[in-house]
């Protein structure tokens, strides 16, 4: 049995343990839900289907109904689109900008590096939820604004992470050799640095995704994220908070949805093979 597992490990190149697999499965599940939500919802999302508000779980409404008598299951399924979609767009933007700038700063060095690092470190000193509050107060809340804001808040962290990795790789002999060959900055970044830091960068991408989901939920919970009648998971908790003293399922299940997504991303990242996670750390 052990030999079999070992040979499988050799074939695929890496091996993910059970906990990691469960995490991956749950993450995949929510991604599929986010993509196919309109096909899966049992009731139209905005439609009031029950005369009873904060209805209990029943055969007809699997997860109960909300404060207006709308079906919670449908709203959670559609909420996945907002939560997963916005967070994914924001984390992609943040990591793309952060990693690109980080690699450039590490390779170019000098004044550009110092100035950019100092500036982004200072931006990091704004507590993230507060940054969101300030921007929403100034500009108002819409989905593009949310994506840009979340990306702006988490780009400095991504920059710092990528820069330190790239700075380590930058001192390696093969980079010096490439420089001696007369390769340009773009070539060095693309062909020498990036392939060597991509593993940890992807793991960081996952962790940052969790932070963004949490922040987005927090903003929506304060009523400053996705605006009604649409609702992401944080917004669903806010809407139905009045049901909390009765222990209504309408408050509990959106929370569980958020927790299941964030915890399973963490489980997946924590159990990634060390080879991927910290190749150059």
């Amino acid at each position: 049995m052990k030999a079999l597992a070992a040979s499988a490990r050799r074939r695929t190149g890496f091996h993910i343990n059970t906990v990691g697999t469960i995490g991956a499965a749950i993450v995949l599940f929510w991604i599929v839900i986010a993509i196919c939500a309109p096909l899966l919802v049992p009731y139209p999302v905005g439609k009031i289907v029950d005369f009873d508000f904060f209805g209990p779980m029943s055969q007809k409404f699997w997860l109960g109904t909300d404060y207006l008598g709308r079906d919670i299951l449908s709203r959670i399924l559609m909420g996945a689109r907002y939560t997963v979609g916005i967070a994914f767009a924001a984390v992609s933007l943040a990591c793309f900008v952060g990693v690109a700038l980080g690699m450039i700063a590490a390779v170019v060095g000098g004044f550009f590096d110092t100035a950019l690092s100092r500036f982004l470190d200072a931006l990091n000193a704004i507590p993230s939820l507060m940054f969101g509050l300030v921007v929403v107060a100034g500009v108002g809340s819409s989905i593009p604004v949310l994506i840009m804001t979340l990306a702006l808040i988490y780009a400095p962290g991504s920059y710092r992470f990528a820069r330190s990795l790239a700075a380590n790789t930058n001192t390696m002999d093969f980079v010096t050799v490439a420089r001696a060959r007369g390769e340009g900055t773009v070539y060095i970044i693309r062909e020498e640095i990036l392939p060597n830091i991509i593993g940890p960068v992807l793991a960081d991408f996952g962790l940052r995704f969790v932070f963004i989901v949490l922040l987005l939920s927090g903003l929506s919970f304060l009523g400053l994220g996705v605006q009604p009648p649409n609702a992401d998971w944080g917004g669903l908790v806010r809407e139905n908070l009045a049901g909390l003293p009765y222990g209504a399922p309408a408050v509990i299940f959106p929370s569980i949805a958020i927790a299941s997504l964030t915890i399973s991303v963490n489980m997946l990242i924590d159990n990634l093979p060390t080879r991927i996670r910290d190749r150059s750390a």
């Binding site: 927090g218 908790v237 908070l241 222990g247 408050v251 509990i252 929370s255 964030t262």
Partner: peptide, 13 residues
Amino acid sequence: SVPEFMVATLAVL
């Protein structure tokens, strides 16, 4: 890895 408001709602529950 869970939002703060979830800790709060759980505490209330």
